[in-house]
Structure formats: structure tokens, C-alpha cells
Design a protein around this nucleic acid. Structure first.
Lengths: 211, 211
DNA sequence: ACATATTTAAAACGAACGTTTGAATTATGT
DNA sequence: ACATAATTCAAACGTTCGTTTTAAATATGT
């Protein structure tokens, strides 16, 4: 076995190329070439291109969602202990902040975040479904927690606002690390940590707004 | 010439299929088949697949952005007349509301909105660039107007918050009219008009939040 | 009406794709 | 060491893609 085995090298290359070029525009030949592996290695190790994408998602998302789930439950138990409703910003932070920490943890993680942001609006069900299946349970947990934090907001409206939140998050995750297209005259792009704080401030204000 | 000429039928079919399946996953054969035209008609009338996409964007976006620009300038001139700063919600409404009116004006418009929402995070520069070129000027105009409405927000932060706004808008435009994936137990999906009001409320709260 | 330009049509082009095959190679277990 | 399993490799498969070509059909202008 080499320093990093073929399977991992393929996952890394696929993660990078799927993120920068998209799923359909990335060929298995480009992936195996960058991974210094044989073309057939993808079908040997993963079965198909779609199964490779699923593996790319699962490798990162299973541990990441586990952390988010723990932080979410911790915020809920803290509130329960103090006999208060959980705070919106704490719930959002549990959901958003691990993404940043993960992003800075390893080089390939940057690409993965882009990939996730794009999966939300992916037209192909093959791509979108294998992603939503991984995040829907956690997302519903967040929704349930937010209903405790914001009991004055009707559930239907809260749900819609959570979709807005998801959109802002996803778009941010996609655009982070790319040249700012809309405003070439950016005064100074915020750091990742600042960006997370700005995002939490933005969406918590939107979620908490009186009806 | 038939009731609707070939060029228009191709534009309609391309709009629908690009929106539902994505640019790369839609073949010219699928488009010309649905348009009841010959395969070569696309290259004859438009030159290439990419040029067809550009035509799809321009047909809708040029008139739509014209309306948005007029409403934006109208809100600004109203404020000037009253010697007050423009209101954030008015500026946002000028930008968001025409999208809804347009969406309800003709059947194919629904598809187009989905297409626009997706173009924001499109990995392929061919697709994204020909879209951003059409909206960037208007977007910078909105940014300039918002700086008048929110002078207390530092420009850099306002810019970042406007990116969040764009994300929430784009995601909403993508998801509108699709089965709500995240929450199968939706109490009652909001109408398009309600959705616009909820979106404006959400993003204006986020934009106006104290730093 | 006829000459001209425009549009449609069928067929084929070369390229790139995901996948499969079968042999060669390498690692594993006894 | 040897038999066996796991992995790598080059090559080819069949399909689909965007585009081009060439001829037929249709509309246009005088």
C-alpha cells in the first residue's frame, strides 16, 4: 500500500474536481488522472461514478453532522438546565460554526464545503438526493430546536425562514474562497471567522424578526 | 412561419429543460425534440449551445432588469423628493417583487426563475459568466442605493450581507415550485406573494441589524 | 413567374463519456 | 515457497454528445 491508498487519493481528487467543475462536468478520467490511479479503479473501489459521489459526501458529512448534532443537543440541554428557551444564535452557531472549523482543519475540506453549498440546488436527483438524505434528519432537529427558541413565530413561517437561512448558508459556502464576482472593488474580504459571525448575525435577525 | 416560430419554440424548450435538468445534462436533441424542430436548428439560429443559453437569459433578463432598474430609481427619487434616506424595504421590493410578477405573467417564466437561481452557484464559467454579466450592473446599483439607506452599516459588512441576501433569494427562486424536500410535513406552503413578503422581511431584518 | 435568400431536414463526423473485460501484477495467508 | 485473493492495468465496448455538411423545401422580392 502506498502512503495514501488509491481509494483515498480518488476521494480527494473527486472532492476537489466535483467542487470546482461540478459533478457532470468532471470525468472519471480527470479524477483518476489527478489521483494517479487507473481509470478502472473508480468502478473497482466504488462501483460507479454516482457511488463515488456518495462516498465523497459520507466521508466528510457523517463526522461533521455528528459534531453538529452534539453541539445542538448541548445547547438544548444547557437551556433545559436553566429552565429557559434555547437562544436562536446558540442553535445557529451549533449548526454553522463546525463547518468553519472543519473547513480549516484540512486542505480538501475547502473544496468539500463548496460541493455541499452547490448540492442544495443541484438539478440532478442522483446528486441532490444522496446529499439531502444525509442532512435532512439533522435539519429537522434544528427546526424542532428553533421552534423552542422562537415559539412566537408560527411554524410555517419559521420553516420558510429556515429555507432562507439555508439559502444564505449554501450560497456563502459556495462562494467562499472564490474571486468576489459581484464586487471587484471589495474593500477587504472578511476572514472565515468573521464571515461566520456575520452570517449568524444576519440569519438570526431574519429568523427572529416579528411577524 | 408557424404560429410560434422555430426560434421561439427552441428558446421555450431550452428554458424549460435547462431549468429542470441543468445546462450540461440537457442535450440539444432533447431540446429540439420538445420544440419539434430539427437538431441542426439550434446551431443555425443561435450558433452553439452556449449561445442558446445566453439567448435564454437575455430574452427574460433584459426586460426584467429594466423594470427593476426603473423601480429602483423611482424609490430613490421618491426619497430624494422627501429629503429622506431611501427605505431598505422599498429598495428590496424594487429588486424582488418584479421577479414574482414576471413569474406569474407567463408559464415558462417559472422555469426561468429556477434557472436564474441556479446560475448563481453554477460551476461552469461559460454558464455563470454570461449570467453575471447581465445582472452585475444592476446589482451594483442596488448596493449603492442600500448604502444610502443604511449609512450606519460599514460598506464591507453591507456587501457581505448583500451576498447573504442574494443567496437567500437565489435559493428561494430555485426551490419555489418544487416539492419541499426538507420538510415533507409542511403545514401549508406559502403562496408566491406571501413568499416574497416573507423574503423581504427576512433579508431586510438581516441587512438592518445593528453591527 | 422566376431567381434568390432563408429555413428545414437527414445523415454523418469526431470526440468524450461511464463502464466492462481479461490479463498482469502485487499483496496476503499458511 | 506456494496458492489464493486483492489490486492494477491497458484496451476496448457501446452510447451520447455538440457540431458540421449537403441537399431539399419554403419563403421572399421583383
Amino acid at each position: 500500500m502506498s502512503q495514501t491508498d488509491t481509494k483515498t487519493r480518488i476521494l480527494d481528487a473527486a472532492e476537489h474536481l466535483f467542487a470546482s467543475d461540478g459533478f457532470h462536468s468532471t470525468s472519471l478520467r480527470a479524477i483518476t488522472s489527478q489521483a494517479q490511479a487507473n481509470l478502472a479503479a473508480v468502478n473497482y473501489h466504488f462501483g460507479s461514478k454516482g457511488a463515488l459521489l456518495q462516498a465523497v459526501f459520507e466521508r466528510r458529512l457523517l463526522p461533521l453532522n455528528q459534531i453538529r448534532r452534539e453541539l445542538l443537543e448541548q445547547a438544548l440541554s444547557n437551556a433545559r438546565q436553566q429552565n429557559t428557551a434555547p437562544r436562536t444564535v446558540d442553535l445557529l452557531r451549533a449548526f454553522i460554526e463546525p463547518t468553519l472549523a472543519f473547513r480549516q482543519s484540512e486542505p480538501g475540506a475547502r473544496d468539500f464545503i463548496t460541493l455541499v453549498g452547490r448540492a442544495l440546488v443541484e438539478p440532478d436527483p442522483t446528486v441532490r438526493d444522496c446529499f439531502t438524505a444525509l442532512v435532512t434528519p439533522l435539519f429537522q432537529q434544528l427546526m424542532a430546536a428553533l421552534r423552542l427558541a422562537l415559539p412566537q413565530i408560527p411554524p410555517g413561517i419559521l420553516q420558510t425562514r429556515l429555507q432562507f437561512t439555508l439559502g444564505a448558508m449554501g450560497h456563502t459556502m459556495c462562494m467562499i474562497g472564490r474571486p468576489p464576482l459581484q464586487f471587484p472593488d471589495a474593500p477587504q474580504p472578511p476572514s472565515s471567522a468573521e464571515l461566520v459571525e456575520l452570517l449568524i448575525r444576519f440569519v438570526s435577525s431574519g429568523l427572529e424578526a416579528p411577524c
